[in-house]
Amino acid sequence: MPRPRILIVDDIVEYLHALQRALMDICDVDIAQSLEEAKKVLSENTSLLLVDICLDESKPGVDRGGVEVLKWAKAHYPKIPVVMMSAYRDFDAAVECLNLGATKFLKKPIDIAELKSLVKELVK
């Protein structure tokens, strides 16, 4: 079985690099900071997408750039599971994402052991 490949989309580049380091032993990790970047990287070879809801640092809690990534991914690659994350306790956003086809919604700070288990489970 080929090594799984996941794409993480978040506006904090240092966070992307830290997640890349943390997940490197179980999968290959691509990173993107916006929908445009995600479009370039996402492919049939992607096993899982992990997306922060807010992709604009000037509008945390308001911006829903990650939801656009989710919509685009579901329209073009419906089989790829999408896990959403957010630093906010935003019930409405979580429901909206799940209705749009997200598999799970994680609240930051993320528990890395839990994330690793989730990745292993979803890329099976």
């Binding site: 904090i12 966070y15 000037s58 630093a87």
Partner: peptide, 19 residues
Amino acid sequence: SILKHRIAHLFLPIDVDLQ
């Protein structure tokens, strides 16, 4: 929210690295 995001920006990567 903007300030909280900036504070998270400072510590989230460290949190992931330590875990």
